[in-house]
């Protein structure tokens, strides 16, 4: 009898302890790839902000572009007994073993920004953007903007063979499909950099009669668009009016160009992957709701009418 009362009491205490822990502080481990780009730095900043907003205790590990560091970090998160793990995987392969370990420890894993080729049962969900969709949003904007007028588009591709370059090209072509007045006349890689974007745009302008045959430039990222804008200006044309500029990523600098009327539209690759991830985790922990295996982030379109100055101010301190 006494023994039973003790058991009930301890069970009650255990429940109490468990609920207080869950209510006060969820601990989440975040294994970030590194800081190879401004966008990545912004993703880290936003993840910290989102965690703080929700009162989540975030343990951050920078893998410096190495998978072994990420695996080490995940193992140490498991050893520390965190409540959940976020991973931005640096490569797609080789995650089975460590994800298995997390699953055995009953720790849900959410993939951010990129996916892995492991079995879907090994992670809770993946939060990523849809690269094809981004290109499509850009293409649809251009189709709507030019209407029925004929429009020759030149394209600045990303690094040849990279998945953003392939998918953003494909998406844009889908976006302008059915509009026979819009044609991609030239397409060349600008390696995602400003310098190459400028150089390639110069050659496009040269090859297309000083730019008279170009109605718009579509760049796979904003940096190349910024380079292209300079090339257009130096050729004596007005970017944004003589040649429309549409690009993807929504980094702060493109909003300055938009404010100056030199860029027309950009599609956001949001650095806020953690927000939806935390929401999915909360629902899963509170009442066991299984999120879908893929949560697509919003690919928001920004144009000159979206108060670019304000967006720039909001974004400039995120570490881009």
């Amino acid at each position: 009898m006494k023994l039973r009362r003790l058991a009930v009491l301890s069970a009650a205490f255990a429940t109490l302890a468990a609920t207080t822990v869950a209510a006060s502080a969820i601990t989440v481990g975040f294994s970030q790839i590194g800081s190879e780009s401004g966008w990545r730095a912004a993703e880290t900043t936003v993840t910290r902000q989102e965690a703080e907003k929700r009162g989540i205790d975030l343990k951050f590990a920078d893998a410096q572009q190495k998978q072994e560091n990420q695996i080490k970090a995940i193992r140490s998160f498991i050893a520390q007994g965190v409540d959940a793990i976020l991973v931005a995987p640096v490569v797609a392969t080789g995650w089975d073993a460590v994800l298995e370990e997390a699953k055995d420890a009953d720790i849900p894993v959410v993939l951010l920004d990129r996916t892995v080729d492991s079995d879907k049962s090994l992670y809770l969900t993946a939060v990523t953007s849809d690269l094809v969709h981004e290109g499509k949003v850009a293409g649809e904007w251009l189709a709507k903007d030019v209407g029925d007028k004929p429009c020759n588009v030149v394209e600045l591709q990303g690094t040849t063979g990279s998945s953003p370059a392939i998918d953003r090209k494909k998406g844009f072509e889908e976006g302008i499909a059915g509009h026979d007045n819009i044609k991609i006349t030239r397409s060349q890689t600008g390696d995602f950099t400003r310098t190459k974007g400028k150089e390639v745009m110069e050659s496009f302008l040269r090859a297309e009669d000083g730019g008279k045959n170009i109605c718009a430039v579509y760049a796979h990222n904003d940096d190349m668009a910024v380079g292209a804008i300079q090339a257009i200006k130096e050729a004596g044309l007005k970017p944004g009016t003589d040649i429309k500029v549409v690009s993807i990523d929504a980094v702060p600098d493109i909003f300055l160009a938009m404010e100056a009327g030199e860029a027309n539209a950009t599609v956001e690759l949001t650095p806020n992957m953690a927000g939806p991830a935390f929401d999915a985790l909360k629902a899963y922990m509170d009442n066991g709701t299984e999120p879908p295996k893929w949560i697509q982030t919003e690919s928001k379109l920004y144009t000159q009418s979206d108060d670019p100055k304000a967006v720039y101010e909001a974004k400039k301190d995120l570490g881009y």
Binding site: D191, T193, R194, K198, V226
Partner: peptide, 13 residues
């Protein structure tokens, strides 16, 4: 190259 793009791109310059 820095003056050309009016910016220093440490990754790619």
């Amino acid at each position: 190259v820095t003056a050309d793009i009016r910016g220093a791109d440490a990754n790619n310059a």
